[in-house]
Write a protein that binds this DNA or RNA. Structure first.
Lengths: 340, 340
DNA sequence: TTGTACGCGTTATCAC
DNA sequence: GTGATAACGCGTACAA
């Protein structure tokens, strides 16, 4: 590889002069600049960012530590994150924890050895004390932004997250505003805090609207298309008079739509279906659904904004963003004679 | 940050000795080793990988240049890639091209400046001559593995890809083996080479089985759930006597299932539906579908294998992997009296 | 406007 | 077994 030294020799100037030219320093004559520049191009010079970083003590490196890119819930967030970081001149390391604590610890230590200036982390959930590596991160004052719900031991770090309860409430309110009074809720797994928050939001909206909630309308579904399918089938069998369905996520909602149409129920003419839009991207989920899409894009931008302030020496800060309800050619007011 | 120098001073030995201890060199006394090691731990020493890399001229850095992690088609591949790279001690840069040539070029140049030892690239498709950056990569002899279908100007590089034609043919053969003779095909966009390959595979299977292909059974769909829905509706309207449907991908297939059940057609009892399994992960697509899943995991492993050989100085090599047909409680032989 | 001296944190080499 | 010296490629500080 071509070094500054090589260019300097061929140009008959010092290394320093070449270095200054390539960084466009003001104290170099136009003449020298053009000569050195064309030589650099001709010789195919590629700067050595790491060597420069060693000298300047600034690596412009960031680390992303997530369970895995296979989880589509976070892909928008990651896109936005990388996009902003790239434009700001940072390069981003990608590491997967696979939800394994040892692997997370190992990955973080390796990134520290790379001298990353900051870290974006989706922590591996675990019980017990603060893991050693997290204590180390705090001690080293490494800028860290936690993405999404943070476990207990991450309280000291900055954080960006979605207001899931609020989004779910908004979704229910939307259905209520259309005139729906009996809304079935296909819930997720009870152990999931996020699923719980969505159920809570749903309940709060009902309460705020003065609607008695009927616990029979709440079904334990799960998180997949098939889970939604089965739950909706059961719902139809029980004939509870629901005119709308809200699902814990969009996959469950799609399953519900499948089940409904298979039973001759039209969507959304007869029954409205709404769900939290995590998994399927807008381009794919072209089914008659109303979704509360998590503002993942804005989340990514916010995360990078916070990172910048941390890098500038600012204190930890957290932000919770509201989701937006997106109505896709879809939700309808309750049909007069059709109930399930 | 603690440096070797700091440890050396406190331990009363030379920097060199500390360096050797931490790399577990054989020519250091057990005594010195344990003393220096405990001191390093106590002082919270974190090695400086970049400085070491500068000296050894080995960065153990790889770059991943893809359109965006939002595209679920490649997420499994990326998972496997990162996993293997990590275990082998490589750290991975993530950069998005967003399908923009300028951005791709810029990203690649930045990674070269980081002195990555190799690159995994999903190239931005473009017409015309070999882009400058690709010519540079060849000239620099940078180890590059192209992921997926490669444009003309990437012929010189290594490559891993799926045999899409073969997978589609396998899928059709599976349907044929169940007794289906009239199989509708919901095709993708004609400009997509990949969609074209899948159609070709379908046709070849029909021909090999001696089945006349009826062009009316081929529908232009697209790539989304909604596209599949519309195409299947039209299929039902036209009453062509199909007993099975094969879709260009799993989203289109799901849309088709939706459409069928909405028309009172049972799946898979009445009509079998099959599709290429790209988008939805196995955990999510729990609908009655048969899929030919691209062996993304194996693709990622293969990509890293090739990269290792390139790093060792080996020549460019390419591998095409077969997909596997996965039958999910799904495809059924043709029903006697039900045709669409 | 250009050049010299030195250091960033580490390791290869070879002498002791 | 241990350490002195130089070098990796570059940039800061200051002198010329």
């Amino acid at each position: 590889m071509v070094r500054l030294k090589d260019i300097a020799e061929r140009a008959g100037v010092s290394i320093m002069t070449v270095s200054k030219v390539l960084r466009d320093a003001p104290d170099i004559s136009a003449n020298t600049k053009s000569r050195v520049r064309s030589l650099a191009t001709e010789m195919g010079y590629v700067p050595h960012a790491m060597a420069a970083g060693l000298r300047t003590r600034a690596t412009r490196l960031l680390g992303l530590v997530i369970p895995g890119v296979i989880n589509p819930v976070y892909s928008r967030l990651i896109m936005a994150l990388e996009d902003r970081a790239f434009d700001l001149g940072f390069d981003l390391f990608l590491t997967h924890t696979l939800e394994k604590p040892e692997r997370e610890e190992f990955a973080l230590r390796r990134l520290l050895a790379r001298r990353v200036e900051g870290l974006f982390v989706i922590p591996v959930p675990r019980l017990g004390d603060t893991p050693r590596i997290y204590a180390d991160l705090e001690r080293l004052r490494t800028p860290v932004v936690i993405l999404g719900p943070a476990p207990e031991f991450c309280q000291g770090f900055s954080r960006v997250a979605t207001d899931e309860l609020g989004a779910s409430r908004d979704l229910t309110q939307h259905l209520i505003s259309l005139g729906h009074r009996r809304i079935a809720f296909l819930a997720g797994h009870t152990v999931s805090p996020s699923a719980q928050a969505r159920l809570d939001g749903h309940r709060r909206a009902l309460r705020d609207a003065g609607i008695d909630h009927d616990d029979r309308l709440i079904f334990q579904a799960g998180t997949s298309i098939e889970d939604g399918f089965q739950a909706a089938l059961e719902l139809v069998r029980e004939s509870l008079g629901a005119t709308a369905i809200q699902a814990v996520n969009d996959l469950v909602a799609i399953g519900a739509v499948n089940a409904l149409v298979s039973q001759g129920v039209r969507v959304p003419e007869d029954v409205s279906v709404a769900g939290f839009g995590n998994i399927l991207t807008a381009e794919h989920a072209r089914v008659p659904l109303t979704t509360a899409r998590e503002p993942k894009f804005r989340l990514g931008v916010a995360a990078m904004e916070i990172m910048q302030r941390l890098l500038a020496g600012g204190p930890a800060e957290s932000r919770t963003l509201r989701a937006e309800v997106i109505v896709r050619k879809s939700t309808a007011p309750p049909a007069v004679n059709t109930m399930i």
